[in-house]
Simulated scan of single mutants.
Amino acid sequence: MKLTLSHIDALQELVNIGVGRAAGVLNDMLDSPIRLHIPEVRLLSPEELKVELKSQFDNSLLATVQLSFSGSFSGTAELVFPSESAAHLVSVLTGEAPGTPDLDVVKIGALLEVGNIVLNGIMGSLSNALIEHLDYSLPAYSENKVNNFPIFADIDENTKILLAHTCFIIEQLQISGDIILMFTVGSLDTLLKAIDLNFGEIL
């Protein structure tokens, strides 16, 4: 099934709704406004995705929260922070100064909480709006460079990935993060059919 401009517009709107809901929760947690960029939606191969991420993050170490989902359509959702933004965000959430010994102890838990809020907000928006049930794994935390991202380990080179790339910036704190949604090619047709069936009725 072909990805059309209407599909892209619908996906951008649904991701915006999910991120907006998550931003409301994070606003309360951080007491700081969150600015959102309109997501960019494209269809890529795994190699093209890797090139895209490398061009953005170079060879930096990245803090990543990954949420796998399955059901009517399946894939993974990731929240990716440069290590400096991740450390700053955890410092704000926990009150620990950056670089203190206690910061690493609570970092994973804090970033998992943020990732869970953001990623569940987006996937909940998609599943509710498209009336499709999804099951979720527990979110997982990792620190890797792009070449070692877990998402590339099990993906066939011929698989097409739908990349919904957006960015939120916590304005006063200068913290930025990226959200990446990846759908397996078999699930992509199901997702697009659900948009065709339901999108006109909900937005």
Rank of each mutant, 00 (worst) to 15 (best):
S60R: 15
T100W: 00
D104N: 14
K160Q: 14
S91F: 01
L203R: 11
G124W: 00
D31E: 12
T166G: 03
G71D: 05
H37F: 05
L3A: 03
Q12N: 10
S6K: 10
E157V: 13
S72N: 10
I195R: 00
I34C: 01
A77D: 03
L112G: 03
V51D: 13
E143P: 05
R35C: 04
L26K: 02
V65S: 03
L79Y: 02
V118I: 15
E201M: 08
N198D: 02
G186W: 11
V106C: 02
L173A: 13
L79D: 06
G99Y: 09
A97W: 00
K107H: 05
T100K: 11
L181Y: 04
A110D: 04
M123S: 06
K145A: 10
D178C: 10
I108T: 15
S187I: 05
I122H: 00
S125I: 02
K145N: 09
S142N: 12
L188T: 12
K145Y: 01
G75P: 08
L3M: 12
L3P: 04
N59V: 06
D58I: 08
E113D: 13
S83I: 11
N27C: 09
P82L: 09
M1N: 10
V41N: 06
I155M: 14
S74C: 08
E84T: 15
A10V: 05
N59Y: 05
N16Y: 01
H7D: 08
L89W: 01
H88E: 15
I17S: 03
N116S: 13
G20P: 03
H37C: 07
K193Q: 14
A23H: 04
L191A: 04
I117F: 00
D154F: 07
A97S: 11
H7L: 04
S142G: 10
E52N: 12
S74I: 04
L188V: 10
P139S: 07
L11E: 00
L44Y: 14
S72T: 13
L49A: 13
P139Y: 06
L67Q: 09
P101H: 04
T159V: 11
S142W: 02
N120D: 11
G18M: 02
S74Q: 15
D31Q: 12
A87N: 11
F168S: 11
V90S: 14
G124N: 03
S74V: 04
L181S: 07
S142R: 06
V65T: 12
I175M: 07
F183G: 03
D135E: 15
L111S: 06
L30T: 09
V114Q: 01
A86P: 11
A140P: 00
S83Q: 13
V65A: 05
V41Q: 06
L53H: 04
D178W: 14
G109Q: 06
C167M: 13
N198S: 11
L130V: 06
I202R: 05
F69V: 08
V114R: 01
S60Y: 08
D31K: 12
E143W: 03
A22T: 06
D178M: 09
P139H: 08
S85K: 04
L61R: 10
D156F: 10
V105L: 14
